[in-house]
């Protein structure tokens, strides 16, 4: 059993072809710009959607911890009291209360993933294990990937790479493709902005670069955090030297669509004022990224000129996605 955040079918942004992405809960990193703060902890979390609430109040009486209160400003959730038991969610007629995170078995997850097999076969797609970071629920992640491989699916591991080498090796061993996040190379900044040291990330990346697996690098472009030419240059240099197997590098422009998620978790978001990236800047960064010698470099996201395509309104996106 493991803690699953969401399973998203027809996932088109997490690897080749048509895929299903399994988002696991739990991550070691605490990136300031995180798009999926609900994936940080392993415990289920209660959230309240104000636009769905009709004021039926069943949740209030269902809560054994008396952690909920409906005020004129909306619902307050006492997070110290809330145990994440989830009793409040099923009684809500409007699904305005949701518990993020469900314990699910390997069989259960696998059955859902296999439903779209005909689409994977035609599109050369498959399954992507994402998070959080799958490394955080190592045993469950390994069991899932092993099962998917046994079913003959193309597997992709979407990871920030922070974990022990032995665990990382085990997951990579069951993955055809690794989607690897490289956010910041400079150690002090990495520590400050993501909450963890960069060394394990780079060490695992170096090891990965010597493996036969396909690798796609992903870098979130967050103004003021990761968007400096120096940072991209450093990542490019690192990739060139250490990950010659990288087939592709995606630069993912920052957006603020995650803001309501932070609010729903009662967590202050430091990037509220962070601006969108400009198209010109993205183009410049792609230029710099070219020095990595990665064959394919792409960028995506909503830019400041607002000249980008519609944001894809998926309920969940992988870590640092978009």
């Amino acid at each position: 059993m493991g803690m699953v955040l969401n399973i998203q079918r027809f996932s088109t942004e997490d690897g080749p072809g048509i895929r299903t992405t399994v988002f696991l809960k739990g991550c070691a990193l605490r990136c300031k710009w995180c798009q999926n703060p609900e994936s940080w902890t392993m415990t289920p979390q209660v959230v309240w959607y104000q636009n769905r609430c009709i004021g039926a109040r069943h949740c209030l009486s269902a809560c054994p911890e008396e952690a909920l209160a409906l005020t004129p400003k909306g619902m307050t959730i006492d997070r110290r009291r809330c145990s994440g038991c989830g009793d409040c969610a099923p009684v809500c007629p409007a699904k305005a209360i949701e518990v993020l995170g469900t314990r699910r078995s390997i069989d259960d997850v696998s059955a859902e993933v296999l439903r779209d097999r005909p689409f994977y076969e035609e599109s050369r797609g498959g399954v992507t294990l994402s998070g959080g970071d799958p490394l955080f629920q190592f045993s469950f992640a390994l069991a899932l990937l092993t099962r998917f491989k046994a079913e003959g699916l193309h597997t992709a591991l979407d990871t920030a790479g922070y974990g022990t080498l032995s665990r990382f090796r085990a997951l990579v061993g069951q993955s055809d493709l690794v989607l690897y996040d490289l956010k910041i190379v400079e150690p002090e900044k990495h520590q400050r902005f993501t909450g963890v040291p960069v060394e394990p990330v780079l060490r695992n990346a170096r090891w990965l670069g010597a493996q036969p697996n396909s690798v796609w690098i992903r870098t979130p472009i967050i103004p003021g955090f990761t968007d400096s030419p120096e940072n991209i240059e450093a990542i490019a240099a690192f990739i060139r030297e250490s990950i010659p197997t990288a087939e592709r590098w995606d630069l993912l422009g920052f957006n603020r669509l995650c803001l309501p998620k932070w609010q729903r978790l009662d967590t202050p978001f430091e990037c509220t004022e962070t601006s969108l990236v400009s198209e010109q800047q993205m183009t410049q960064l792609v230029e710099i990224a070219n020095e990595s010698q990665v064959p394919k470099i792409t960028w995506s996201g909503v830019t400041r000129e607002a000249a980008a395509p519609d944001p894809i309104e998926h309920p969940y996106v992988g870590c640092d996605r978009r």
């Binding site: 088109t12 072809g17 048509i18 689409f119 035609e122 599109s123 050369r124 797609g125 519609d310 894809i312």
Partner: peptide
Amino acid sequence: PSSLRDEEHLNKLVAFLRT
């Protein structure tokens, strides 16, 4: 439209139609 923004995504539509 953004889900079909480039060749890569167009291929996904092709595969979707075939499936």
